[in-house]
Structures are given as structure tokens and as C-alpha cells.
Write a protein that binds this DNA or RNA. Structure first.
Lengths: 202, 202
DNA sequence: TCTATTTTGTACCGCACTGTAAAGACGCTG
DNA sequence: CAGCGTCTTTACAGTGCGGTACAAAATAGA
């Protein structure tokens, strides 16, 4: 655990804000994917030079991993809140709205980092593809855990099973992200979610 | 319209089967995406040299476009059949099963070409990204048309609206493809579809 | 056989890519 | 001020990328 008061290190102080640069990198990875984001794209958005990037983030993969952690940190709260809703129905709706399209900030890319960051690609990026897939499946498991609890508490309608329901919602969320990435507006996606909720079994 | 009987042209005959090579290229694009598939990957799978590829398919983008048409042709029949089912419920289920995981051939990649072929990427591949997104949205529109017809015929349950229902199913199908691409088995995905159908409003 | 036409492999081009070596720039400490 | 430690910049290395020039090889027709 580092000290809260960032102690000034000896040597020349860095001239850029690491967090700002990292955020810029995250947005580029989000928009273009891991392999689609060149170092030229990244350094331009981060407003630093290539050696500076390498000194601060190790290499492209290191930068991606930090950008990913930033992305997850920015959304963790919302998804945790969704899981903590009191009914299965509310959990499902909150989960879908999160991916489907609540655009809080205007300058943010569409879609989901976890989906479009590295869905497929060359063999070289296989590690990243697997990492993102693993995080996605972790989300599915979190949903399943939540629904297992609901089942124990008698909150799960008899027609649903925790595992398949989690898979279903997870897939639908990913799909909404795909549509969003493809240019479908959040209004349209939210209407689709409206329909799902309107037909939710009680 | 070319003649049905391929007349032998003057000059050296090609030593490879164009359709076989194209199919191999399609599989590589499908597995790795447009930008993730290098010419080395492609020529190796197609078992031809680079100049041969360029002579036969113009360039990488031309090859992708032909591979895409082949892919669409291979699946068009199934999707048309799905649209021609007699009830909305059957249309929906057939559509979802198609993407969700009926693995007819074992050597075929997981996921959907239209989703993972070029979901995002560098600016250079923007044209391809847009083309795939456009084809995906065409699928959505076909579903909507089908549901509009169902509404006219009184087959659409009152809680559904053609547009949002089409968006919903389209998103879910894309999401199933994402999950499949991430390693989720077709058995698990089909269970999720089972749940959707079990809770389908009558 | 000769010519026109097409395909094929070798060898190459220019470029963009990720990554780095080296030295100057800068602030802190003594 | 000198010296140390870190950051930044210029310039470059090595590799792989998409794409091609060229000439040999293989056919059809004259």
C-alpha cells in the first residue's frame, strides 16, 4: 500500500499527469481495440512521446492492463450496485441499462471495452483476448451467484434457473454493447430493454 | 451473368481451387478478424503465394469482401428459413439457435463473422467495420419486417412492438456470438436460449 | 513451332509497427 | 555550485506489414 501523500521522489519530475494520460489511452483502446490502437494513436492522445510511454507503463500490454483496470474501476461501483438491488427483476434491468446505453459522459466511446477491446485478433494478442473473456465470464458468475442467493430466498420465479439466466443476461448485455458499438443509439437500445422488462415473468 | 460452362481461357491454368482457397481465407478472417489476419496467415491457410492471392482476389479488402459473401451465402438459407417460421415465437427461437450454437461442422470457428470480423479497429479498416455493422442492422430490419407482418396478422403478443423486439433479438444473438467467441460452449448457450423460450409470453 | 495469355515463385519495395539506446534537461540534496 | 537520480527527447533498430516487378512456366490457338 503506497502512502497517501505522494512523496516527491528525487530526480526530474514528470511533466505529464499519469492519470490523465492513462485515461486518454483507455479511451483509445476502448474505441479501437488493443491491436487496432497503434502507439502513434496512443502517444498522440496521451500527448507524450513513445519512450515516455514505455518508461511509465512498461510496454503496450502493460498500458492496456492499466487502462483495463481503470475502466473496471470506473464501472465497478455501478455494477456492484446493480447486483445489490433487492429483486432479480431489478438486478436484471439495472445490469442491462448499464451496458445498453446510459451515456453519462458525452465524450466516451460507445460499446464495452471488455467486448471490443480484443474479441478476436492475431495470435500475438491471444493473452489479452483471454483476459477480457475471463473478466466477462466473471461478470456472468457474479450474476449467477446473485441468482443463486435469490433462489434460496425464494425471489427467483420458478421458470428461471440461476446459471442459464445469468448466461442469458450476460449475453444480452454483450449484445447491446455490440449494437451500441455499431452505431445503434442508446434510446433505441433502451426501448429494447423496455420490452424485455415489460415481458419479464412475475 | 457468366456462362454456366466455364470455358477454358488461354494461358496457364491456375493450380489451386479458388473456392477452396476462399473458404480457407474466410475461416481465418472469421477466427482472427480482418486486421488480426495477416497476409502470412492467409496465404498459409490458403496454400498459395502472395502474388497469387493478389492476382485472384485483388487485395486484402477484396479477399475479405469475397469471404464475407461466401459466409453470408452459407448462412442465408438458414436465416431465411428462420424468418419464414409461422409464429413469432418460432422465428425468435430459430434465430437465436442459429447464432447461439448449432455447430454443424466441427472445424468451424466459434462466434459470428459479422460480429468479430471487424467490431472495432484502426481508422484504416473503418470501411469494413461499417460494412459489417450495416449487414448486422440489415438483419435487424428483416426481423422487424417479419414482426410487422405478424402484427398485421395478429400473431404478435400485445406486449411486443416490432422494432424493439427486433432490436432485442438482434442484440441477444450478437451477444450469444460474443459468448461463443469467448469460449462458452453451445450447450450452455442453448440452455440460456431454453430459458428465454420458457419465459416467452404467450 | 511460334505467339498470345495467364499463372506462378522469387525477391523485393516502402512503410508502419513495437521497442530502445544515448544523451541532454531538470530538480533535489549536500 | 557539484553530483545524483529521474524524466524527456532525438534518433534509430529490427521486424513484419500490405503490396508488387519480373521473369519463368504452362496452356490455347494460329
Amino acid at each position: 500500500m503506497p502512502a497517501l501523500t505522494e512523496k516527491r521522489l528525487p530526480g526530474r519530475p514528470r511533466e505529464f499527469d499519469r492519470n490523465t494520460a492513462l485515461r486518454a489511452a483507455m479511451l483509445v483502446f476502448w474505441r479501437q481495440g488493443y491491436e487496432g490502437a497503434s502507439l502513434a494513436d496512443l502517444t498522440k492522445a496521451m500527448e507524450i512521446s513513445k519512450p515516455t510511454l514505455y518508461a511509465a507503463f512498461k510496454d503496450k500490454e502493460g498500458l492496456l492492463r492499466e487502462a483495463l483496470r481503470l475502466y473496471l474501476g470506473l464501472h465497478a461501483e455501478d455494477y456492484t450496485a446493480a447486483l445489490n438491488r433487492s429483486t432479480v427483476r431489478e438486478v436484471a434491468e439495472a445490469w442491462l441499462r448499464l451496458t445498453g446505453g446510459v451515456r453519462k459522459e458525452a465524450d466516451v466511446p460507445s460499446g464495452c471495452f471488455l467486448v471490443q477491446g480484443a474479441l478476436v485478433g492475431s495470435q500475438a494478442s491471444r493473452v489479452i483476448q483471454d483476459e477480457l473473456a475471463s473478466i466477462r465470464s466473471k461478470g456472468t458468475r457474479q450474476l449467477e451467484q446473485r441468482f443463486l442467493r435469490a433462489k434460496r430466498e425464494g425471489d427467483l420465479p420458478g421458470t428461471w434457473e440461476p446459471g442459464p439466466l445469468a448466461q442469458y443476461l450476460s449475453a444480452l448485455a454483450s449484445g447491446l454493447a455490440v449494437q451500441s458499438s455499431g452505431g445503434v443509439s442508446s434510446e433505441v437500445l433502451n426501448e429494447a430493454v423496455d420490452q424485455v422488462m415489460a415481458n419479464w415473468p412475475e
